[in-house]
Simulated assay, not measured.
Amino acid sequence: MFDIGFLELMVVGVLALLVLGPERLPGAIRSTVNTVRSIRNMASGFRQEVEQQFKEHELHENLKKAEQLQLKNLSPELQRSVDELKDAAASVQQPYRKDK
């Protein structure tokens, strides 16, 4: 992603040592690592959320196609989507069913 070589890292390290000093440098490194880690986690969460939205959109489009075909003569892909939606609907309704 970034084109940073070993020499550049050494220059940044020496400058950080001169500016921050040996007492504050480990804390600054820890803080930087924690910040980078939290940014990566946020980016990962965002990516997963976008992927989930795309999957939901695809299922919605497949359901529209299936409704237009009146759930007859569906392609295998559409049939899988319809079955997946039926299973999801059944699993949501299951806790609320009253068995008499």
Rank of each mutant, 00 (worst) to 15 (best):
V92S: 13
S91M: 08
E61Y: 08
K100L: 12
L59Q: 04
V14L: 06
S44K: 15
L25V: 01
N41R: 12
I29P: 00
G13I: 03
A88F: 08
S31T: 05
E56L: 13
A90S: 12
R97Y: 10
D83G: 05
R37F: 06
D99C: 09
I39M: 12
S31C: 07
F6K: 09
M10H: 06
E58V: 06
S75H: 06
V92M: 15
L78V: 03
E56S: 12
A28Q: 06
V36K: 10
K55F: 10
F54K: 08
M1I: 08
E56V: 01
V33C: 06
R24H: 03
L25W: 00
E8Q: 12
M42S: 11
I29F: 07
K98Q: 13
Y96H: 14
L18N: 05
V92A: 15
L20M: 08
L7Q: 11
I4P: 02
S31W: 12
V33K: 05
M1C: 06
L59W: 02
N62W: 01
D87F: 13
F2A: 07
S44A: 13
E49V: 10
Q48A: 09
L25G: 00
Q79W: 07
Q68I: 10
E77H: 06
P76C: 05
Q70V: 13
E56C: 11
H60E: 15
N62G: 04
S31G: 07
L17S: 08
D87E: 14
K72G: 02
T32C: 06
E49T: 13
E61R: 11
K64D: 02
L17R: 01
K100D: 08
L78W: 01
E84Y: 08
F2G: 02
L59H: 03
L69C: 11
E67H: 06
M1V: 10
Q53E: 15
A66H: 05
L15I: 04
K72E: 15
S75W: 02
N73F: 05
A28R: 01
L59D: 04
E56Q: 10
F54S: 10
L15E: 14
E58A: 14
K86G: 02
A28L: 02
V12F: 08
K86F: 06
E51M: 06
E8Y: 03
K65P: 00
N73S: 11
H57R: 15
V19K: 11
E67S: 07
I29S: 03
L71F: 12
F46P: 00
N73G: 05
I29Y: 05
S75I: 02
D83E: 10
D3Q: 15
L69V: 06
L71W: 07
V14G: 02
A88N: 11
F2K: 04
R40D: 03
G13P: 00
R80E: 15
T35M: 07
L59Y: 03
P26V: 00
A28E: 10
E23W: 04
R37M: 05
S81G: 07
S81M: 04
N62K: 12
M42H: 10
V33S: 05
L20F: 08
K98T: 14
E51V: 01
